[in-house]
Amino acid sequence: MYGTGLAKGLLLTLRHFVDSYVDDIRYGFRKYHHSTDNFGIRQGTKTKGVITVQYPDEKVAVPERFRFVPFLIVEDEDHPTRAGKDWCTSCGICAKVCPPQCIWIVRGNDPNTGRPVPEPEAFFIDIDICMNCGYCAEYCPFDAIKMDHDYELASYDRTTHHIHDKERLSKPNSYWRGIAPTRAYEEMLARGTWEHKDAAKEARRGAASARSSSSAPAAEAPAAVAAPAEAEAPAASAPAAEGATPWSEDDAKREERRRKALERKAKRAAKRG
C-alpha cells in the first residue's frame, strides 16, 4: 500500500525518540550527572540514543595516542643529577622527518671549543604549519619530543603566540608519564631504563669503571638510574642487578652505531641535495 514505507520510517524515528528516554531510565538519569563513570557507559557500545557532551563544561578526555602539537621533554626538577636538562640532543631527525617543515632547531655549541654539544640552543615549532602527524615523536631516537594532548591553543594574535619557542615547548618528563602512562612504559621497555639513553649509558660506564678500578660501593650507579616511583612498573623501574635489564649493553651500542650511521647518511643525502 502506498505510504507504508513512509509510515515504517516514521515509526523508526519515533522509536529513536522513545529509546533515548528509555535509556535515561535504564541508567537512572545518570547522563545528567557530570561524572566520568556515567560518561563511559553513555558513550559505550551498549547504549541507544545520543548524549551531548557539554563542551566546554565537560570534555571528552583524549586517548593516550592522541596527537596534537608537539612538546619537548625536560628532566623533572627533582631529578637527582639531570634536573631541568633537555632530553633532546638536537640530532635534527624531527626537523628532517617533519612533512610541513615546521620545526627549526639551532644546534648547541660549546662556547669554549665551538664544537657541537648534544642539546639544542633554540627550538621552534610554528603551530600554524604543524599538521599534527606525529612523525617527530615517532622517529625521535631519544624519546625527547612527544605529541601533546592539549588541544586548546586558540589565541587572539597568531603573530605573537603561534611560534612556540623552547621555553613554551618544554614540559617535564612527569607530565608525559601522566598523560600517556602505557606508552611511557613501553618506551621504557624499549630503552631499557626510565632514564635518558645518554644518562643511562653514562651511569653504566661509571659503574663499570668503578668496578674495575677499585672496590668502591657499586650501589651508587643503580641509584642514579633508579626512576621516580612508577606505580605501573615497579619491577622494571630499577635495573639493580646486571642482566636484569631487558636490553643488553651490546644492543645499546648497536642502536647507537645505527643511529650515527643513519645520521651520517642523511647528512650525505642532504649535501647531495
Partner: peptide, 27 residues
C-alpha cells in the same frame, strides 16, 4: 604506525575531562 592498543583508554588531563576505558577487542 602501531598495533592495536590493549584498551581504548583515555587519560584525563584537561579540566572537566570525561574518561572512557574499553577493552579494544570487545569494543
Amino acid at each position: 604506525f602501531g598495533d592495536l592498543p590493549e584498551r581504548l583508554k583515555s587519560v584525563s588531563n584537561l579540566a572537566n575531562d570525561r574518561v572512557r576505558d574499553y577493552n579494544t577487542m570487545q569494543f
